[in-house]
Simulated assay, not measured.
Amino acid sequence: MSRVLIVGAGGVSQVVVHKCAQVPEVFSEICLASRTLSKCERIAAQLDRPIRTAQVDADNVAEMVALIRDFKPDLVVNVALPYQDLHIMDACLETGVDYLDTANYEPIDEAKFEYKWQWAYQERFREKGLMALLGSGFDPGVTNVFCAHAQKHHFDEIHQLDIIDCNAGDHGKHFATNFNPEINIREVTARGRYWERGEWVETDPLAWSMSYDFPEGIGPKKCYLMYHEELESLVLNLKGIKRARFWMTFSDNYLKHLEVLGNVGMTRIDPVQYKGCEIVPLQFLKALLPDPASLGPDTKGRTCIGCLMKGVKDGREKQVYVYNICDHQDAYREVQSQAVSYTTGVPAMIGAMMMLTGKWRGEGVFNMEQFDPDPFMEKLNLHGLPWKEVIF
């Protein structure tokens, strides 16, 4: 029986709250907090059990500390913006509470995806006997656990890793993003980066592509090489890794809109002056685009996210593909969110469950692949994200 404070009230948070509420034997009391109280109250009204709601500015450490001391949670689940990670970690350190998030910290003025800022908290969390679990979403998150599962059960060494993320859904909009538009567009327009024989290799944004034939009727889709933060920890924690890449599918329509918006400066993250006011073009664009949380009723199709791994076992070459397929409409029927939010929110709940039940424990800052994958993989099957594996 544990108390959990969930910070943030967007599409992913909606899933996390629903899924935590479904497991009262672990999450006995829930508090949902956000800068906008009405968003918390809207989510709370969807549930079959009462939860507490609160208003908090996650950038304000003093406000976070006051809320934590008032509610007294056993764990803080951060599903707010990545810019706010360090402030929430500071509040957890000050109050002596464990921490979990789904995405690594990003400086607000630069699209830079690195764990160095959060890894720097290692000694501070360890000295206080606290645990911080980073990236407990799908990618990062489940993909890290898929790799740990394969390393434990299938390989002596994993030499090649390709994480392949396909959203084969359609929301019917001319242009919309399936999660926070600001974070999504910063990620997609950043330079590509992959690991090759002991060093990072950079590419121009979306300059590399391949076709991949996805299972269970989804079929061939064009995938683009990107940089994704889970690669940074995986290349440190996988035995024998020689090459690690991340791929994501995009429709031609999405890429054409993104190209035009970039050409006219709407994806810039530096401030510009307009009629005496300072605005950030990408933040203004975010205000114009559909809220990802509103896309659920109209989104149809499936996602497929998995890890294709090649390596050796007992001296023989081996290839394993571990993946999940999630249906947008099934997700909406259960938690009133589309599958992109669902595939991030469910693993956040499971990661919290691992910590609160003692299945995963440690002192310091950890990435997902550093723990035993078996209990997490078991819970994926029980809580809405069943996985399959193909051995070649």
Rank of each mutant, 00 (worst) to 15 (best):
G311E: 02
F125W: 06
D109N: 13
E114W: 04
A176V: 02
N367W: 05
Q118D: 14
G219C: 11
Q151P: 08
I68T: 03
D48G: 12
S211T: 12
Y342T: 12
D298N: 08
G301H: 03
G219D: 11
R186V: 07
D330M: 12
I6C: 07
D59H: 13
G217D: 14
K19E: 15
A132S: 07
S233L: 03
Q84G: 09
V312N: 11
V390L: 10
L255D: 11
G198R: 01
M353Y: 02
N381D: 14
L67Q: 06
L308P: 03
G172Q: 08
N167Q: 11
T267H: 01
N324V: 12
P297H: 13
L356P: 03
L133P: 04
D139Y: 02
L47H: 10
A176N: 05
A62F: 06
N104M: 09
L385W: 04
R69V: 02
V77D: 00
L261S: 09
Y115G: 00
N367P: 02
Y194M: 08
K72C: 08
D74I: 01
V145H: 01
V335W: 01
M64G: 07
A45Q: 11
D372I: 08
M377A: 05
S2D: 12
G306M: 02
A66Q: 15
L134E: 01
E127P: 10
Y194F: 13
Q14F: 00
R191V: 11
M355E: 05
V320I: 15
K39M: 10
C92Q: 06
T299Q: 06
C223H: 03
N367A: 14
P24T: 05
Y332E: 13
W195L: 08
H18Y: 15
L385E: 04
Q84I: 06
L258V: 12
H383T: 12
H328F: 09
M131Q: 05
A168N: 15
L206V: 11
V12C: 04
N167K: 09
V23D: 00
K242D: 01
C92D: 14
G351H: 00
P181C: 04
E363G: 12
L289F: 09
A33P: 07
L75S: 04
L133H: 04
Y321R: 11
F246R: 01
P50D: 10
I241A: 07
E25D: 10
R333N: 11
C92E: 09
A244E: 05
F113W: 14
T357W: 01
D57R: 08
G198T: 01
Q273E: 15
A62T: 14
